[in-house]
Design a binder for these strands. Structure first.
Length: 469
RNA sequence: GGCGACGUAGCCAAGUGGCAAGGCAGAGGUCUGCAAAACCUCCACCGGCGGUUCGAUUCCGCCCGUCGCCUCCA
């Protein structure tokens, strides 16, 4: 079974094969913890989540690195305002970020290094680049000499002539040789020592530029060449392009073999979501608005392919919630179903086909929306089979396997614990007594009351079932 | 100005050179004390104009529209 991934570097889908058989080395750009992450950030993280889950699903062992950027202009400036160190300032946002990830069931990664804890590695790389002539000092700063790296622009499919003609070539107040050169090291500025943002280096006291951290940390944890590097599309240029320039010049080896970039989550009007435009929503905002974290997960993960723009849309989240509900209902039904005496071979075949199609869709550049289409097809057929007593032992087993496969990516079936169980059961019993007495007014009143408390009831031949509405 | 993406039913969305998945919403049924759930049925000719082709939503060109990137934003 071949696994195809769309490689930004080549612009097409390629068969994936890790350097080391059975083991995938993966680097995905992490958050700058200067504030609460917005929901668009989490779309990207759920893309990482899908990628790593499918790699594991495919049997690979993973070493997945996600960096925490805790040295950065905005962090320094806010920390200065508050009179705290950058670690003290960033710590709570880092914690909030990890909490939010857990809320949307992001699977934990193997390594989460902080920039502040890897400055010596960055210094070493800058020294190497200086020694090789790929970098130069200009006063207290060190810049990368883009002209020393002929392949600059290849990854992002930009040529240097185009860059120079770019509309955003800002007036530059640094002593750079070339406007496209970027900072590897920024000399100490007044006030930076007070917030713990200054480090010693042979080329002068200061702090690392942004791009160098990823180059240094990926080298440390994954080696000079690793399998997959991923990030949001906005990181393609200049961030990833600069990483390539730094790492490949320093290590004299290709950085990543496959580059993956996910599209943005747009706001409701279709515009890019960014703090600067003020059109952001955080996960916490959506939760406060009453959305279920699992519905948010499903919405971000499964409603559009990762390379497709997606709009944040409340109707869409509600639709996702309904889909999750349908899957959970079906899973619960499969769990409690007794096998019919005989299997309908057509049903069994359909379920097995669905499982193969599901996997094939994911193997085709992580096409989860398509995979989910097959899944719901199968759910409908399976429900019909259960309705009609055509689901024997083989069909039930096939249903369980399909759900298990799907939930390895979706991770929406498991519900949070139900502490109110006893109370609900008591009210259900009371309502059953009322129904037996044909006191339907009372029975409906209880049902309404539970509904108001977020519990919905279903009367079935096998008895009453309830679930969170 | 340069590079690129997208435009499929009320909404979201997958997809293919040969009669367009799936979900949500909606309508009508079966079942039910009534509901709910489930199932059944119904609901698109794929932005516009040309071209290539036996045949295009799918390939090419142009146009219209939306969006992104072009130095630190997931």
């Amino acid at each position: 079974m071949t696994f195809l991934l769309h490689n930004t570097a080549s612009g097409g889908k390629e068969e994936f094969e890790p350097l080391e058989p059975g083991h995938v080395r993966l680097y995905t750009c992490g958050p700058t913890v200067w504030n609460f992450a917005h929901i668009g950030n989490f779309r990207t993280f759920l893309f990482y989540d899908l990628l790593r889950r499918h790699l594991r699903f495919s049997g690979y062992r993973l070493t997945h690195v996600v960096n925490i950027t805790d040295i950065e202009d905005r962090i320094i400036s806010h920390a200065t305002e508050r009179g705290v160190s950058i670690r003290e300032y960033a710590g709570p946002y880092e914690e909030a970020f990890l909490e939010d990830l857990a809320t949307i069931r992001f699977q934990g990664v193997e390594v989460m290094p902080r920039a502040t804890e890897h400055v010596p590695e960055m210094v070493a790389m800058v020294e190497k680049l200086l020694a090789k002539g790929n970098a130069y000092q200009a006063d207290a700063d060190v810049y990368y000499r883009v002209s020393s790296f002929p392949r600059y622009g290849e990854l992002a499919h930009l040529d240097r002539a185009g860059l120079k003609a770019g509309a955003r070539v800002a007036a530059d107040d640094y002593d750079k040789e070339d406007v496209v050169d970027f900072a590897l090291w920024k000399g100490e500025q007044p006030g930076e020592a007070a917030v713990g943002a200054v480090w010693e280096a042979p080329f002068g006291r200061g702090r690392p530029g942004w791009h160098i951290e990823c180059s240094a940390m990926s080298l440390k944890y994954l080696g000079p060449t690793f399998d997959i590097h991923a990030g949001g599309i906005d990181l393609l240029f200049p961030h990833h392009q600069n990483e390539v320039a730094q790492s490949e010049a320093a290590n004299e080896a290709p950085l990543a073999r496959v580059w993956l970039h996910s599209e943005h989550l747009a706001d409701a009007t279709g515009a890019k979501m960014s703090k600067r435009l003020g059109n952001v929503a955080t996960l916490r905002d959506l939760l406060d608005a009453g959305h279920d974290p699992v519905a948010i997960r499903f919405f971000l993960l499964a409603s559009a392919h990762y390379r497709q723009k997606l709009r944040l849309d409340e109707t869409g989240i509600r639709a996702a919630a309904e889909q999750v509900r349908r899957l959970r209902d079906f899973a619960a039904r499969v769990d409690r179903s007794q096998p019919a005496p005989a299997d309908d071979p057509f049903l069994v075949q359909e379920l097995e086909d669905a499982r193969h199609h599901y996997r094939a869709a994911l193997d085709d550049d992580l096409n989860l929306p398509q995979a989910v289409g097959y899944l719901f097809d199968a759910v409908r057929e399976a429900n019909a089979g259960l309705d009609q007593g055509r689901a024997g032992p083989a069909a039930l087993a096939a249903m369980r396997v399909l759900l298990d496969d799907a939930d390895q990516h979706l991770d929406v079936l498991k519900e949070e614990d139900r502490s109110l169980e006893a109370e609900v059961e008591r009210l259900i019993a009371e309502r059953e007594a009322a129904r037996a007495a044909r006191d339907f007014a009372r029975a409906d009143a209880i049902r309404e009351e539970l509904k108001a408390r977020g519990i919905s009831l279903e009367d079935t031949k096998e008895g009453v079932r309830w679930r969170p509405a």
